[in-house]
């Protein structure tokens, strides 16, 4: 059985207690996107300020559990200052980290697996269309290393019910980037 220490790593708790980039940005010029976890009612608001293809600034609002909050905090630190293309790559890597284990959960996780959550439901529920090939490709070692602190969230996949908590802010960010791209 997966232990709590797999889920609540110190770095995760640190981001939860001291969230980075928390707050709002004036809209406009910033872009505001809301994400919602229908299962538990958690809400994430991502404020994005993108200029010349660079995520100049972003802020996180809303409320949720330690996993969704720390994931959002780490995400904000990871993509701030990056190009939107880099941000998208980080999103893809993170999401593949969150899903590679899902297919193996049936056999390995035993009691921890949740039959209520069919595979892939996290991306479907967010209402986003994602390229399934991207989802399924396991991240390389190099990509995992590049995730830095974010790799600490890997333990979440052992707790399938919580995967949606971890991916909420990322789906919201992806949606925000899409909205900005189409409105530009």
């Amino acid at each position: 059985m997966a232990g709590l220490e797999d889920l609540y790593r110190e770095i995760i708790l640190d981001h939860y207690r001291n969230p980075r980039n928390r707050g709002e940005l004036p809209v406009p010029p910033a872009h505001r996107t809301e994400g919602f976890n229908p299962l538990c009612g958690d809400e994430i608001v991502v404020y994005l300020s993108v200029t010349d293809g660079i995520v100049e600034d972003l802020r996180i609002g809303g409320q949720g559990c330690s996993i969704s909050q720390s994931s959002a905090s780490m995400m904000s630190a990871a993509v701030k200052g990056k190009t939107t293309a880099e941000a998208r790559r980080t999103i893809a890597t993170f999401k593949s980290m969150m899903s590679i284990h899902e297919s193996t959960l049936d056999t390995s996780a035993g009691l921890a697996s949740d039959p209520e959550i069919p595979e892939g439901v996290s991306s479907e529920d967010s209402g986003l269309d994602e390229d399934p090939s991207d989802e399924l490709r396991p991240p390389s070692e190099a990509e995992l290393t590049a995730l830095g602190d974010l790799a600490a969230l890997q333990g979440v996949v052992k707790f399938p019910v919580r995967i949606k908590c971890a991916t909420l802010s990322w789906n919201t960010l992806a949606q925000g980037l899409d909205e900005i791209a189409t409105s530009a």
């Binding site: 709590l4 559990c65 330690s66 996993i67 707790f159 919580r162």
Partner: peptide, 12 residues
């Protein structure tokens, strides 16, 4: 504490 976190720790 968020209810999810509470119930997760209680589960352990």
């Amino acid at each position: 504490l968020h209810p999810h976190d509470i119930s997760q720790v209680l589960d352990a």
